[in-house]
Design a protein around this nucleic acid. Structure first.
Lengths: 156, 156
DNA sequence: TCCTACGATGGACGGAGTCCAAGTCAAGAA
DNA sequence: TTCTTGACTTGGACTCCGTCCATCGTAGGA
């Protein structure tokens, strides 16, 4: 029913998947085929996908899945902390399945590609006390901007 | 024709304004009443406004101004480097007239207030070469997240 | 003053996301 | 196994943000 390719890496992925599905079930998620497919699509991704891309990928397995369901499910995964929402360009939000591993983003101004990166040093510490205006600073999001090798080459 | 109020503070603002208008004229801007009004609206702002807020404020002075004109003018101001485009949430872009002074943003997770802040150190340098994946990194945007004193107090 | 190319207009359009009423079904209870 | 029920899904309408385009208007140079 689900055209899951098999291969040498498959076992590990399926196990990671079960972890995610188990965590979701443990938090009281009613496990529907739609939610399972959305979770699986995200879990297999190593890039940051848009809701539309999730919908397209999910529809390959479950053609009748609706846009509203995809948005609902993504929203729930975000509020459960399993997925990060990233809006790098003011256009479509992207979803980052790598939420359990703290990281920042490197975005290509040409093609929009987003890569996870890991800067060194304490980023929050870079903001002096005098610049905090009494805020309790709890986190920081960093987006590095540039051109990927392909776009840089195309730009001459 | 232009219902510009006059008052004790008016002189200073008009001078700063003339600077901006002069810069724009020097860059070959054809000075229309619409562009003048949009530039004036932005220049008077110390907060980060949406295109819609700019339109509303501009329409007070020039009721027949169109949305397309406001977007065009904002786009030009951005590409001239006079105004920064900021998208802190995935919703409407905001425009930051403080473009001539490099800065980052501190956002309150409670009320959404955005403050300009000035972190110390070279932020781009925090990204190791090995983490750049061949990208030509040209800039960095940092958003510090936290709670402002009021929201922190309200949260207990 | 006249010309003309640049800019403004406003309405249509498109993408992203939300909302809602009606139908469906997962999973616990009996 | 078969209810039962309320959480979930559907799809279409809707909103919001922004862009496009044909047409009209006008700033500013000749």
């Amino acid at each position: 029913m689900y055209p899951i390719k098999s291969g040498p890496d498959e076992r590990e992925e399926v196990d990671a998947m079960s972890d995610l599905l188990e965590r979701l079930r443990a938090r009281g998620w009613r496990m529907t085929s739609q939610r399972r497919v959305v979770a699986e699509v995200l879990d297999g991704q190593h890039v940051h996908v848009t809701a539309d891309e999730v919908l397209a990928a999910a529809a390959l397995r479950l053609p009748e899945i609706s846009r509203a369901t995809v948005y609902n499910t993504l929203g729930e995964l975000v509020s459960l902390g399993e997925v990060l929402e990233v809006s790098t360009d003011g256009r479509a939000k992207r979803y980052d399945p790598n939420a359990r591993n703290p990281h920042q983003h490197l975005v290509c101004g040409g093609c929009g590609t987003v890569r996870d990166v890991h800067p060194v040093g304490d980023l929050v510490a870079g903001l002096p006390e005098a610049e905090r205006y009494g805020f309790a600073v709890t986190g920081v999001e960093v987006t590095y901007r540039g051109l990927c090798p392909e776009c840089a080459a195309a730009a001459g």
